[in-house]
């Protein structure tokens, strides 16, 4: 956790994952020899076709599944199971249905032993950041998908993780809402500057959000592309932006060529 001056970076070295498929009785190598270096406060997108191993990488960083070989270091420390230094935003939101929006967001601080008054103050702050102040007292099932994912983002951020891990968080909302959420995420990132690993199969989304796009195919890193588009980023400006178009085209070509 953000104690003292620990660096909030992520280093992955020669990471591999082999699953044993119980039904087929065969080994499946989902991730091979992946190395990545994500400095503090960088926003990287990992993009690639379905089944290329994106979720597997993210789940290993989160500590939900063990890795077969290689190393994952967060702030210099090896990953060993899930922990509050790595916040996760799930595609399916994964909110606690039995808790109000406010209590969901206050969950991380509560686990850290922060008192009720203080953690609700933190939660209100992050709900305001996610433009959700009105929904504080409601239950997750009373919200739209887009609002639920805002809660998911606020909940992960309220715990002040070193690294924020997002696995296709906007894949299950409609196109308009998705664009709004993407713009909000870039705004929040500029405000808080967390280190982010964002997984998607949507090339435009990957380029729009990130400082750097990592193209993945069949469990291997194909290439990394720097994105030095100006911020703040809004779709109205970028739709017609030549640099955005050529970057997107490059990433798309890369992903499709493999």
């Amino acid at each position: 956790m953000g104690v003292g001056d620990a660096v909030k970076n992520l280093v992955i070295r020669n990471l591999s994952k082999t699953y044993f498929d119980v039904y087929a009785g065969t080994q499946v190598t989902a991730v091979r020899d992946v190395s990545l270096n994500v400095p503090e406060s960088e926003f990287i997108s990992i993009v690639g076709p379905s089944g290329c191993g994106k979720s597997t990488i993210l789940n290993m960083i989160a500590g939900f599944i063990p890795h077969s070989s290689g190393e994952i270091l967060v702030g210099g420390k090896p990953v060993n199971g899930p922990g509050p230094d790595r916040g996760v935003v799930f595609q399916s939101f994964a909110l606690f249905p039995w808790r109000t929006v406010l209590e969901n967001v206050a969950f991380g601080p509560k686990m850290r032993g922060v008192g009720k008054v203080e953690r609700e103050k933190i939660a209100h702050e992050f709900l305001a950041l996610a433009k959700l102040s009105e929904a504080a007292g409601r239950y997750p099932n009373e919200l739209s998908g887009g609002m639920q994912q805002r809660v998911g983002v606020a909940r992960a951020l309220a715990n002040e993780p070193d690294v924020l891990l997002m696995d296709e968080p906007f894949a299950s909302v409609d196109a308009q809402t998705r664009m709004t959420l993407q713009e909000e995420l870039t705004r929040i990132w500029e405000a808080k500057r967390p280190t982010v690993i964002f997984i998607t199969h949507d090339v435009a989304e990957a380029v729009f959000l990130a400082n750097r796009v990592v193209a993945l195919s069949k469990g291997k890193v194909l290439d990394e592309i720097e994105v030095d588009l100006p911020r703040p980023r809004v779709w109205d400006d970028l739709h017609e932006n030549e640099q955005f178009k050529s970057l997107t085209a490059r990433v798309l070509q890369l992903v499709r060529s493999a």
């Binding site: 989160a62 500590g63 939900f64 199971g81 899930p82 922990g83 509050p84 790595r86 916040g87 996760v88 799930f90 399916s92 994964a94 909110l95 606690f96 969950f107 991380g108 686990m111 850290r112 909940r155 992960a156 715990n159």
Partner: peptide, 14 residues
């Protein structure tokens, strides 16, 4: 759901 348990674990739940 497993992801709900995972969410709690990654928020620091023991």
């Amino acid at each position: 759901p497993l992801h709900v348990r995972n969410a709690a674990a990654s928020l620091g739940a023991g």
